[in-house]
């Protein structure tokens, strides 16, 4: 058995590395750089019921060891995803994780229902997008909101459901417990941290949306901490993300309790990052006599 093989929420992954939603489109552009079959899976761009244009530019700002973005869930809508993107994705020999969002509970329910009849392997539910006015993070910052979305999605699909949590909360472990209680199969964290940059000459924010989500290596220690707290609070598996840029980072976040790892902003700096991380993890396993990567999940030895 390949040492990186992973079973997560009942889904088989050839390795635990998955490009994160919103950093990899639907994968097509990256297939010109490497075969997508190298990846454990792909979490595709967040999809809503109808097409969304997203926010006005500028949508990105450089920050120390990271960036702020405010895309605002631009996407062509769930029907386009199912009809135009999914058939191609399913031929890439990798796990397809649909990522969904909504402005209200009914939108989440409708999008999840449409996906239930498709070949997607898993549904990741974004209740933590900081860049949209309605819905998004509003649901993810209270236990009641997070639970309500989970309950609505759970009721309409048999697919594994993974709730993507916001770090912009007082206790992320409490939110995780709330979604677990409503039947979530897994949680993924962290989405971006809300931030802001200002041009000191023009006194205007750099982002047209004024504020945006911080990601990249700058947020990695926050992600490790939150994954650790959540993994200790729930019995469902945790998908860790937030600034993972190297195989060493992936191992570290797995030690904190993640059994699957998403790679996001690192792809902006290096489109080959997911493949480089997989190769690095293979070496790590070989060098350390690890035959099954699940050995390291949650294996941190805290003081």
């Amino acid at each position: 058995m390949n040492s990186l093989e992973t079973v997560f929420a009942g889904v088989h992954f050839k390795n635990p590395i998955v490009p994160a939603s919103g950093t990899f489109g639907y994968g097509r552009e990256f297939s010109e750089l490497y075969p997508l079959s190298k990846l454990g899976g792909i979490s595709v761009k967040g999809t809503t019921l109808h097409k969304r244009n997203g926010n006005l530019p500028p949508r990105i700002a450089e920050t120390p060891m990271g960036c702020l973005n405010s895309v605002g869930l631009q996407n062509p809508g769930i029907d386009h995803f199912i009809n135009e993107e999914l058939p191609w994705l399913k031929k890439q020999d990798t796990v397809v994780i649909a990522n969904i969002a909504g402005a209200d509970i009914d939108e989440y329910r409708q999008v999840a229902q449409k996906l239930d009849d498709t070949d997607v392997d898993m549904i990741e539910v974004n209740i933590s997008c900081p860049n949209v006015k309605a819905g998004g993070a509003a649901f993810g910052v209270t236990c009641e909101g997070a639970a309500a979305v989970t309950k609505a999605v759970r009721a309409v699909t048999k697919k594994p459901v993974m709730m993507k949590l916001s770090p912009n909360v007082t206790s992320i472990a409490d939110i995780a417990k709330a979604v677990e209680a409503e039947g979530a199969d897994a949680v993924s964290l962290i989405n971006t941290l809300l931030g802001m940059r200002i041009d000191i000459r023009t006194r205007k924010p750099i982002l047209h949306n004024n504020v945006g989500g911080l990601s990249g290596p700058a947020v990695f220690p926050v992600a490790v901490r939150m994954v650790w707290q959540v993994a200790n609070a729930v019995n469902i598996p945790v998908c860790g993300m937030g600034g993972v840029s190297s195989a060493e980072d992936a191992v570290e976040i797995m030690l904190a309790g993640a059994s699957l790892v998403q790679v996001g902003a690192a792809i902006f700096a290096d489109p080959l990052a997911p493949v480089r991380i997989i190769e690095g993890m293979e070496s790590y396993c070989a060098d350390n006599g690890i035959t099954d990567i699940s050995e390291i999940v949650g294996a941190v030895k805290p003081y």
Binding site: R59, I60, V71, F268, P271
Partner: peptide
Amino acid sequence: ERMGCGLGGCLVCVCRTQKNDEEVY
């Protein structure tokens, strides 16, 4: 426009265009 990945993965570098009388980013 301010750009992220440069490939089409992050969708940050939008410009306002129109196709079939509809505004498209």
